[in-house]
């Protein structure tokens, strides 16, 4: 239990996925203009990353690193990048269809963000990190969930700040993306304050 909690705090806050690992920069910069859309995007990311880390952990444990195959000398782990990216792409499509059919209210709030996530490097990044750190299935799910919550925290704070920035008088060359990156820099410094926690 304590270990899981440490993994969760570590990936959500200390090693924040956007601000210290630079994964998922695209949605972080692209969809952070309004708090509402940012929260929707964040929620969709939480949903997808949690499911995808569960599925990829299952596939890794029972197919790619299958003990029965390993003992016969067949090591399929080298296929992980190819398998993970395809599984994630298919999974997002599948989740979208499932939500559309069975949970229309949830689809309405998350649906538009789902296709954006297919190409999100954070999803593949988490799946690969789970393998590199040799997490089991439960640990992978917790790590995936916490990483995505870290993304949600970062993107919502960023959107809140950007709504205020709109009214500020910014030097001309820094208008647009540049000032957002400066903001990200300051947020990243703030998040570095957590680094002594674990």
């Amino acid at each position: 239990m304590k270990e899981l909690l440490l993994i969760a705090i570590g990936s959500a806050i200390v090693n924040n996925v956007v601000l210290s690992q630079f994964l998922g920069i695209c949605p972080f910069l692209g969809v952070s203009k309004k708090t509402e859309t940012a929260a929707g995007m964040g929620a969709a990311v939480v949903f997808v990353i949690t499911i995808s880390s569960f599925v990829t952990a299952l596939i890794y444990k029972f197919i790619l690193a299958n003990e029965a195959l390993m003992s016969k000398g067949i090591d399929l782990t080298y296929l992980q990048t190819i398998v993970f990216i395809l599984v994630i792409a298919a999974l997002v499509q599948f989740v979208e269809m499932f939500l559309k059919k069975n949970m229309p209210p949830l689809y309405e709030s998350l649906g538009v963000y789902l296709p954006l996530i297919t190409t999100n490097c954070a999803v593949l990044g988490v799946a690969l990190t789970n393998v590199t750190k040799e997490y089991g299935i439960l640990e992978s799910v917790v790590n995936g969930f916490a990483t995505a919550v870290g993304f949600l925290i970062a993107i919502v704070i960023m959107a809140g700040i950007r709504e205020k920035i709109e009214y500020n008088d910014i030097p001309k060359p820094f208008r647009g993306t540049a000032i957002v990156l400066v903001t990200a820099c300051l947020m990243s410094i703030a998040f570095m304050g957590f680094s002594g926690m674990i």
Binding site: L19, F22, P173, F174, I179, L181, V182, A184
Partner: peptide, 20 residues
């Protein structure tokens, strides 16, 4: 700080501004 995470954002911000 330039070799740590915040430095990356700051250098890129300056680069984007220069390119503007």
């Amino acid at each position: 700080i330039f070799v740590m995470a915040p430095g990356a954002f700051l250098v890129l911000a300056c680069l984007v501004a220069i390119m503007n």
